[in-house]
Design a protein around this nucleic acid. Structure first.
Length: 292
DNA sequence: GCCCAGGAGTGTG
DNA sequence: CACACTCATGGG
């Protein structure tokens, strides 16, 4: 079963469209959600275990007994106030990414907790998605607050800062252990609050100063952690897509300028559609959104 | 066993 | 600024 007691269970139905949980939670932008046998997804929002499921065109959200406003947390996480259809309408004018939009109509860019996103993407360098998930679960289990059986909150900078580099390496982080350890000592709640006030370009410049944060990670954190939809993270897949589909080759800086001109304030969504395009192009037929 | 991974940091030409 | 090299391991 799903582990929810049912006693004093909080449950809501939400009308968020377009939305496909598999496309949204399984596309690689976020790493902790798990798909159950019945198609529901279990994750953690604001230190509470939440179950999401699509039923009859609605989104059903359930959570353990508690005090937090689950409806508000889910709406914030899924960016319910974004008009994704309108964003798609705008981006669809670009015939190159139109196919990606058709296939990923239910993908929504999520709003991850700032710190969790920053730490996660520092770990995400030069690793594949299954491993990234494993690293994150490992450090949550070791250093995060236990919410319930087999569920741990993502550890705060302070909690994670208590871990030695060697201990972090023991969680399978490899060379990323040193980056994460340094990062914990440069970030606290006050610093995060300061960063939240910044616009995209300024925020990006600040993030890039942090250990283990380069161009790509900074843009991912801007996009998924701080909600800057104009951010356009360029990884190897996007690089291939830009080369193959737009004949654009060059430095990160030049490609970023191209994306800014071409996709504007919703470049983040364009990036997702291009990413999907390129990955399916690379692995003809293989489904990358496997539900385990 | 082998190859590669949603890169970043550092040093060199 | 552009490139090359290294970084530590686990998935496929």
């Amino acid at each position: 079963m799903n582990g929810f007691s049912g006693y004093a269970l909080r449950q809501f139905e939400l009308d968020i469209a377009p939305l496909d949980l598999g496309q949204t939670l399984g596309c690689g932008q976020t790493f902790r959600w798990r798909c159950q046998q019945d198609g529901s997804w279990i994750g953690i929002l604001s230190n509470q275990v939440v179950e999401l499921k699509e039923e009859d065109g609605l989104l059903r959200a359930r959570a353990d007994p508690g005090n937090g406003d689950i409806r508000r947390e889910v709406c914030r996480y899924l960016r319910a106030s974004d008009n994704v259809s309108e964003i798609q309408r705008i981006l669809r004018k670009d015939k190159v990414i139109a196919p990606g939009i058709r296939k990923m109509r239910g993908l929504r860019i999520v709003k991850i907790d700032e710190w969790e996103c920053l730490a996660s993407y520092v770990l995400a360098t030069y690793a594949n998605i299954p491993r990234i998930s494993k690293m994150i679960e490992s450090i949550a289990r070791e250093y995060g607050t236990k919410i319930r059986e087999e569920s741990y909150a993502f550890p705060s900078p302070h909690e994670l800062g208590r871990a030695s580099v060697k201990a972090l390496a023991g969680c399978g982080l490899g060379y990323r252990a040193a980056y994460l350890n340094s990062l914990c000592r440069e970030i606290d709640e006050q610093r995060l609050d300061e960063l939240k006030k910044l616009g995209y370009e300024e925020l990006r410049e600040e993030l890039i100063q942090l250990p283990g944060v380069g161009d790509k990670v900074a843009d991912c954190v801007c996009l998924f952690g701080f909600g800057k939809l104009e951010s356009f993270p360029i990884d190897v897949w996007i690089e291939r897509a830009l080369s193959r589909l737009y004949k654009q080759n060059g430095t990160y800086r030049s490609l970023r300028e191209f994306a800014k001109d071409r996709f504007g304030k919703y470049a983040g969504y364009a990036q997702e559609y291009l990413y999907y395009n390129e990955r399916t192009f690379a692995s003809e037929g293989a489904c990358m959104f496997t539900r385990t």
